[in-house]
């Protein structure tokens, strides 16, 4: 069942990526161009998914929006993974004082309501793709750090690591070459889930009016559509569906990866 789900997720994801890449082929005009009459319902001539209040093509917005949303999701997740892996690896590998200090920082971020911190950060740097991505990364790295720390703590005691230490390999080398590759699978799984969460967070920011108006993302489209929701349902429903489908696909793939990569199940069953 899960593998089937993962395959379905992968297919959907692939389609979304293809749509993002081929957007200029399907829609030569910019998604910001006013190509038709405003507020046309779906199915109107040349406006498969209708138009928004400036007469812009929703379908074109969805296609180009895929680029922005995927990039925001991926890069935010990457930021979170980089921070999380760094903190987790250092804490788990060195232990003691380093661990204590880094865990206080982690607790700090876990204790503050993440979404409130996100709003403060975006307000501080004023909304742009860069500030949004960095802010999302900054508020979502803690679970990764905890996972990586756990993996590092247990892997550090293993023979091959102890052997490397005895052979006098540098700490950095051991962390990067010996332990990290073995700790990566849960990171990949959580990372794939984070992509979806980041897309959702960006849409929530846009909902509160903190999106980047130079980038047409799905979240931005919903944010723009929410006030007209009763006048033009298609403006929020289609980008909403795009988000739901993509995040769903990402989660399915994440589940699939989890099953494929995590040896835990089999290990426990054998034990």
């Amino acid at each position: 069942m899960h593998n089937r789900g993962a395959v379905a997720g992968a297919v959907v994801l692939l389609l979304v990526v293809i749509m993002a890449i081929l957007a200029p082929v399907f829609f030569p005009a910019s998604p910001w161009d006013m190509v038709g009459a405003p507020l046309q319902p779906p199915g109107s001539p040349d406006l498969l998914l209708g138009s928004d209040m400036l007469g812009r093509n929703i379908a074109s917005g969805i296609a180009y929006g895929a680029r922005v949303s995927l990039v925001i999701g991926l890069v935010s997740a990457l930021v979170a993974v980089v921070i999380g892996v760094t903190v987790g690896a250092l804490a788990g590998y060195f232990g003691g004082m380093v661990d204590d200090a880094l865990m206080r920082i982690t607790e700090f971020f876990q204790t503050i309501p993440g979404f409130v911190l996100l709003i403060v950060l975006v307000a501080l740097f004023s909304p742009s793709v860069v500030s949004i991505v960095v802010a999302i990364g900054l508020v979502s790295w803690t679970p990764i750090a905890r996972i990586v720390r756990g993996e590092f703590m247990s892997l550090r005691t293993r023979e091959f690591v102890q052997a490397a230490i005895l052979m006098g390999e540098s700490n950095l080398r051991i962390i990067l070459r010996q332990i990290l590759p073995n700790a990566l699978s849960p990171v990949i799984v959580s990372g794939s889930l984070l992509v979806g969460t980041s897309i959702l967070l960006e849409s929530a920011l846009s909902f509160l009016g903190l999106g980047d108006p130079n980038m047409m993302s799905w979240g931005y489209m919903i944010g723009a559509a929410r006030t007209v929701i009763r006048l033009a349902w298609w403006m929020s429903v289609f980008p909403g569906l795009a988000i739901v489908l993509t995040v769903l696909a990402l989660n399915l793939v994440g589940d699939g990866l989890n099953e494929a990569l995590s040896p835990r199940m089999s290990r426990k069953v054998q034990a």
Partner: peptide, 15 residues
């Protein structure tokens, strides 16, 4: 149940 849970999980709550 799994599909439903995933679906809810993927939906923006404000929406």
């Amino acid at each position: 149940i799994t599909v439903l849970a995933l679906l809810v999980f993927a939906t923006p709550s404000f929406w």
